[in-house]
Simulated assay, not measured.
Amino acid sequence: MSARPNAALVLIEFQREWLDPEHGRLNHLVEDRGMLDTAVDGAAAALAVARAHGVPVVHVPLVLTPGAPELESWTPARLGLRAAIPKAGTWIQGSTGVEFAEAFRPAPGEPIVRGRAGASAFAGSSDFDLILRRLGVTDLYLAGFATHVCVESTLREAHDRGYTAHVIHDACAAFTRAQQEHVREHVIHHFGDETDAAAFAASLDSAISAR
């Protein structure tokens, strides 16, 4: 697989909520710590090579106002994450958890998605699609958290919107290994494909050499 010249690396929720062992509430819920460490290393490698080759990097945080009214939409938030997030008080603007993890802070000029309100990077009044279209991106390389929630939701919607989506599986993590493997074995192939950080780097090297 060769990375196309109209590709972008998409970093989903590389925020302290996930990556700060001291202040990250979701970090404390990750059972497979080795998988999380692998994902951080894989994402850092993918980020470094994307920047080195001038591949666009798009950052997809989740930032909500107190009480998370963005999740109410036109109906009350009774079930799922729409109900759980306001109760947990996670992802609230101004809190430590919404800050980007130090190793994944956006570089100058790298777009940060605004207005997202939901599991998918496209959800709510997100400007994710507009950013991708402005950049001329057709292929998305997805990294982030959690594999079985926000990465999977973004993968599915990217497919339905006509994008070609690739999951960098060793740059993603779920809470458990079983959740991770379920997505890899039973979900990804319906909506895109998977790669790893080393193959992503090699594909960029190959694409540059072929020019």
Score class of each variant (00 low, 15 high):
Ser2Leu: 14
Ala3Glu: 02
Arg4Thr: 15
Asn6Phe: 00
Asn6Pro: 11
Ala7Trp: 10
Ala8Trp: 06
Ala8Asn: 07
Val10Leu: 09
Val10Ala: 08
Ile12Gly: 05
Glu13Leu: 01
Phe14Glu: 07
Phe14Pro: 08
Gln15Thr: 06
Arg16Asn: 14
Glu17Gln: 13
Trp18Ile: 02
Leu19Gly: 01
Leu19Asp: 03
Leu19Ile: 07
Asp20Asn: 08
Pro21Ala: 06
Glu22Asp: 13
Glu22Thr: 12
Arg25Cys: 11
Arg25Ala: 13
Leu26Gln: 04
Asn27Thr: 09
Asn27Pro: 03
His28Asp: 12
Val30Lys: 00
Arg33Thr: 14
Met35Cys: 09
Asp37Phe: 10
Asp37Gly: 09
Val40Trp: 01
Ala44Met: 04
Ala44Trp: 07
Ala45Phe: 09
Ala45Ile: 05
Ala46Arg: 00
Ala46Tyr: 03
Arg51Thr: 06
Ala52Val: 04
Gly54Glu: 07
Gly54Phe: 06
Pro56Lys: 01
Pro56Arg: 01
Pro56Cys: 08
Val57Ser: 04
His59Ser: 05
Val60Trp: 02
Leu62Asp: 06
Leu64Glu: 03
Thr65Ile: 00
Pro66Ile: 06
Ala68Glu: 03
Leu71Gln: 08
Ser73Glu: 14
Thr75Ser: 10
Pro76Cys: 08
Ala77Glu: 04
Ala83Gly: 11
Ala84Asn: 11
Pro86Thr: 12
Ala88Gly: 14
Ala88Asp: 10
Ala88Tyr: 02
Trp91Lys: 01
Gln93Met: 13
Thr96Asp: 10
Glu99Tyr: 13
Phe100Tyr: 11
Phe100Val: 03
Ala103Gln: 00
Ala103Glu: 02
Pro108Tyr: 08
Ile112Arg: 04
Ile112Gln: 07
Arg116Glu: 15
Ala117Ile: 11
Ala119His: 07
Ser120Trp: 02
Ala123Met: 05
Gly124Arg: 07
Ser125Val: 12
Ser126Phe: 06
Phe128Asn: 08
Ile131Gly: 04
Ile131Thr: 15
Ile131Lys: 06
Leu132Asp: 11
Leu132Ile: 12
Arg134Gly: 15
Leu135Phe: 06
Gly136Leu: 05
Thr138Pro: 10
Thr138Val: 11
Thr138Met: 11
Leu140Lys: 03
Tyr141Val: 11
Tyr141Gln: 01
Leu142Cys: 10
Ala143Leu: 04
Ala143Met: 04
Phe145Val: 10
Thr147Gln: 07
Val149Thr: 10
Val149Gln: 11
Ser153Trp: 07
Thr154Phe: 11
Leu155Ile: 13
Glu157Trp: 12
His159Phe: 13
Asp160Thr: 14
Gly162Arg: 02
Ala165Thr: 01
Val167Asp: 02
Ala171Phe: 13
Ala173Thr: 04
Ala174Phe: 14
Ala178Lys: 12
Glu181Leu: 15
His182Ser: 15
His182Glu: 15
Val183Tyr: 01
Arg184Val: 13
Glu185Leu: 15
Val187Asp: 09
His189Glu: 14
His189Trp: 09
Phe191Thr: 08
Gly192Met: 08
Asp193Phe: 00
Glu194Tyr: 01
Ala197Asp: 06
Phe200Gln: 02
Ala202Arg: 12
Ser203Lys: 02
Ser203Ile: 05
Leu204Thr: 00
Ile208Asp: 12
Arg211Trp: 10
